[in-house]
Design a protein around this nucleic acid. Structure first.
Lengths: 187, 187
DNA sequence: CGCCGAGTTGAACTGAATCAAGAAACGTGG
DNA sequence: CCACGTTTCTTGATTCAGTTCAACTCGGCG
């Protein structure tokens, strides 16, 4: 819980009262490797904070799994589309490692927004950061070569290589596993 | 101004007091075709609402212009990265048609957030919509073929063809103008 | 020991880029 | 209202990055 609070404070520092409220609303859960946080067709009713571990979001297309995001320590995770719209998810969310997460339901979060302007502000600020991150990734996907995307990834998260299989990384970068293997052999 | 207010209310309806505050904080500007709202290197200090007209955001890479978004009626526009971080913009924002915009400075917007929880909520909700939109576009860029991306675009905004040149659309889709021309001839 | 998943390597294929040239449409001045 | 230059769009030939399919290697584990 301390991890969550100090992460939150790095976005926007909350007063004691709001912090207490946050503490009361998140619940801890522990998952083991390969377990699912959410599967296709279910409505995602919670927002999660990943205290420890690793996780991926993927959907299936023509029988293949397309991994399109990873989460690690200190990431907020959810099926964004499903959580916001409360429609069935098209994606699956699966743990890549044994993990500790903190969960809050959408209703509780909404209640927190109503009771604490500060918490809505915090989330507004968090959205800004996540939006910028996604924008950068979009530009990479649309306008950069496979090798450049890989190099960027390694520069930004060098640790990822030891924690995620090559196949998942290739998928994340939008390239085939063979191509990624060849890119690596050239470095 | 009525356009802006009714658009805002479609996201999240504001009480009279907050609406008044919004009215007082946005200023109208009129621009003609090819004028710039922002150029590379400048810090974007305003958020804009496009009441009428069309606009594009682009950056230059190897001497070529890469258009990566368009704005039309009822879109909020800004250089998101620059506006949020208050760092120099890497992008240019240029009008494609004579346009009417409403502008609010970052300071004024921040003040509105402080004075009206509701307005911060409105923006939080707007971010959610814009995030989902970007996420869809990202998935398209990473995992769909050029032809599919074009077809999706036409399905979502059939009007775009009459208002934006082929070259800009090709750039937006992340393909060359020649390829787009060939895709069209095949339909 | 043999199997299995993860990663590598090779060869053929393909979607899209690039280079190059021409055709249409568009706007401006005479 | 036409003539000319400019910009926009199309079409063709060639090249290239990345995919696909297939075979092979390697390390771990029952």
């Amino acid at each position: 819980m301390q991890t969550l609070l100090s992460h939150i404070n790095s976005y926007h520092s909350l007063n004691d009262e709001a912090q207490k409220a946050v503490e009361n609303c998140f619940e801890q859960h522990v998952f083991s490797k390969n377990e699912y946080l959410l599967t296709e067709g279910k409505i995602c009713r919670h927002l999660f904070f990943l205290e420890k571990g690793a996780i991926r979001g993927y959907y299936t297309l023509d029988g293949k799994e397309i991994t399109y995001w990873f989460g690690f320590e200190n990431d907020f995770v959810t099926s964004f589309h499903s959580f916001i719209t409360q429609q069935p998810s098209v994606e699956n969310i699966q743990f890549l490692e044994g993990s500790i997460v903190w969960a809050i339901s959408k209703e509780r979060l909404t209640r927190l927004f109503n009771e604490h302007h500060e918490i809505e502000r915090l989330v507004r600020i968090a959205y800004e950061k996540y939006y910028i991150r996604l924008e950068e990734r979009f530009v990479g996907a649309q306008f950069k070569s496979a090798a450049e995307r890989y190099e960027n990834l390694i520069r930004q998260s060098p640790h990822i290589i030891e924690r995620v299989s090559l196949g998942h990384i290739a998928s994340y970068l939008g390239i085939s596993q063979e191509t990624l293997s060849r890119i690596r052999s050239r470095l």
